[in-house]
């Protein structure tokens, strides 16, 4: 059975003056899942989020949200809530007042969720009567999430909700998002925090220069046939180095890009998954205990870098290999045709 779709965009194009913010973007977001949206600055993430929130209208293409086509008028589609470029909060009001005034905007036929309940969910009940002026960035993010929850959305759009969050705040936010998804809410999450996206998202869309360079399940990005750098820490670093050097398919990465401090006994090896498996088996046979073995960068981040970095800007030592699977590989060829973007435009 095919999964229902909360958002479906086909050929979405949005142009600001001479700048093409979105260039024939096709995107599908499955209902009841967290969909990650990543891309370098200026990739068009905020523009796409703005379209979902009804803050802008696409110049071309079609966009269906929650089963109905979006018209030409500016206004948030029904059932959609969230924020872009940080939550909009009024610093002279307390957290409770901010939410209460928003809740009062909800029509009688669709009453708001409880203010206290929303504050409790994001862990701000203790500071409900403190003016937002004194809030940290993380607290503001959590309050922004609580504000978005007030309208009981069926599509929640969040732009960098993890900015400034401490571990406790992060736990609250992740908990809220997981609960929403379990209730069937679709969440679109834009973030530069790859660890968050990997932990939360089932699907991800990677944008680059206004085009989709990947869209699909996160699992598809974990390409076993692609080489990755791994941090390896063992009980006997010298022996581990010798074993690694003698294992086929394993290369020890040295130099400033190795991401390992010599004094910690950590070595960085570059290999495919199969070679790493063989390395572990050999170390066990040599009686060398493996204390840590993990990718230096996550598969999502590796894919992000590979998909979005221009060859001319590739750092020394960085991988230039393209992933084997992208849904729209042809888009990559058109990067050089994009007009240059200013830093200001990049924030859109």
């Amino acid at each position: 059975m095919e999964a229902p779709v909360a958002v479906r965009g086909r050929g979405i194009t949005k142009v600001f003056g001479d700048v093409v913010a979105l260039d024939h973007v096709d995107v599908s977001m499955t209902q009841g899942q967290i969909h990650g949206l990543v891309g370098p600055n200026g990739a068009g993430k905020t523009t796409l989020l703005g379209l979902l929130l009804g803050l802008a209208v696409a110049d071309e293409g079609s966009l269906d949200i929650l089963g109905a086509p979006v018209g030409r008028g500016l206004a948030a589609p029904d059932g959609v809530s969230g924020f872009v470029d940080g939550p909009g909060l009024y610093p002279t009001l307390t957290a409770r007042q901010n939410l209460a005034t928003l809740a009062a905007l909800c029509p009688d036929d669709a009453p708001a969720a409880g203010v206290e309940e929303s504050l409790e969910q994001v862990g701000l009940a203790d500071v409900a009567d403190v003016k937002v002026r004194g809030f940290s960035l993380g607290m503001r993010q959590r309050l922004g999430l609580a504000a978005a929850l007030l309208t009981r959305p069926r599509l929640l759009v969040l732009d960098e909700p993890s900015n400034g969050l401490d571990p406790v705040g992060k736990k609250h936010v992740h908990g809220v998002l997981s609960r929403l998804v379990s209730e069937g809410v679709t969440v679109v999450l834009s973030s530069h925090r790859m660890d968050d996206l990997e932990a939360l998202c089932s699907e991800v869309t990677i944008l680059s220069s206004g085009r989709v360079v990947f869209s699909g399940p996160v699992a598809k990005l974990s390409d076993d046939s692609r080489e990755l750098d791994y941090r390896l820490r063992a009980s006997d670093p010298s022996a581990a180095r010798a074993v690694a050097a003698g294992t086929p398919g394993i290369r020890i990465v040295e130099g400033p890009d190795a991401a390992a401090r010599p004094d910690t006994g950590v070595i960085i090896v570059r290999a495919r998954v199969a070679a790493v498996d063989e390395l572990v088996a050999r170390m066990v046979r040599e009686d060398v205990a493996v204390r840590e073995l993990a990718p230096v960068v996550s598969p999502l981040e590796a894919a992000f870098l590979a998909l979005t970095e221009h060859p001319a800007r590739t750092e020394p030592g960085a991988r230039t290999e393209q992933p084997a699977r992208t849904e729209q590989p042809a888009r990559m060829e058109q990067h050089s045709e994009q007009p240059a973007r200013t830093e200001q435009e990049a924030d859109r």
């Binding site: 999964a3 229902p4 929650l66 089963g67 029904d78 059932g79 036929d109 009981r152």
Partner: peptide, 17 residues
């Protein structure tokens, strides 16, 4: 990618013009 479109909301939240 294959998918079906979710049915339009029929609950109170979707009520309106």
């Amino acid at each position: 990618m294959t998918a079906t479109v979710a049915p339009a909301p029929a609950d109170g939240a979707g009520a309106g013009a």
